[in-house]
Amino acid sequence: MARAVTNRRKTIATAAAWTIGFLIFFPILWTVLTSFKSEADAIASPPKFLFFDWTLENYATVQERSNYFRHFWNSVVISVGSTLIGLAIAIPAAWAMAFVPGKRTKDVLMWMLSTKMLPPVGVLVPIYLIFRDTGLLDTRTGLVIVLTLINLPIIVWMLYTYFKEIPADILEAARMDGASLRSEILYVLTPMAVPGIASTLLLNIILAWNEAFWTLNLTAAKAAPLTAFIASYSSPEGLFYAKLSAASTMAIAPILIMGWFSQKQLVRGLTFGAVK
């Protein structure tokens, strides 16, 4: 049972945790702050923390010069698209594994996991050549295909662990009540698994949004999502700190917010249920 904690101890823990939390978060905070500075203030020495002329011009410039929203839209299409397709493929598969387990179910699950262990660089060359020959290079379709496939094992696994928690009785009741397989999955399983499906969706969008191997290697300009767009700042243009910060802030903000909502499910998803 919990017991009374001395206020002194609690104060020390609070101070230490907040300090360390602040330090870890600081690079992000600094990026956000810098995005509101003028370029001169951004490289001022000594650095200016809060007292500078706040401006939004960097955001405007980024959009104007690099068509930020096109890359943003690419990121949205690629991450949401690959996640939705992944879910559509994974929900039936996870249903089968959770509710009609057979002798080989475990082997299939482990094998799916093993495909995730394949280092991307091991298959970079053939994928690149296949994409080049089929015209998928630098297209959103191509990236959606790759990201769907690399994240499919995670989606199946997460859904599987959530579905396992739904009593099989209820699905059997639906079957007795005359539901077809389609109705059973559509009207009974899916609504009951909404929280699990939602967190799978969220985590997978995050992973796809931040994926930076395939997106960098398979795109040039047209289909480049934000990962690749930001990478283009590694050229001397990156020295414009305020603009780099504005672009970075816009690239990470949506995901950061989603991530904060899904942090609890993250553990389960990324450890394949090994830690709950």
Binding site: P27, I28, N210, T227, I230, G238, L244, I252, M258
Partner: peptide, 22 residues
């Protein structure tokens, strides 16, 4: 918790560039 978890959600290219330059 929210502060500590945040860096995990930053895309690799952003964190690399922010650290490198700023």
């Amino acid at each position: 918790r929210v502060l500590v978890i945040a860096p995990f959600f930053v895309m690799p290219t952003v964190s690399a560039l922010v650290w490198k330059n700023m």
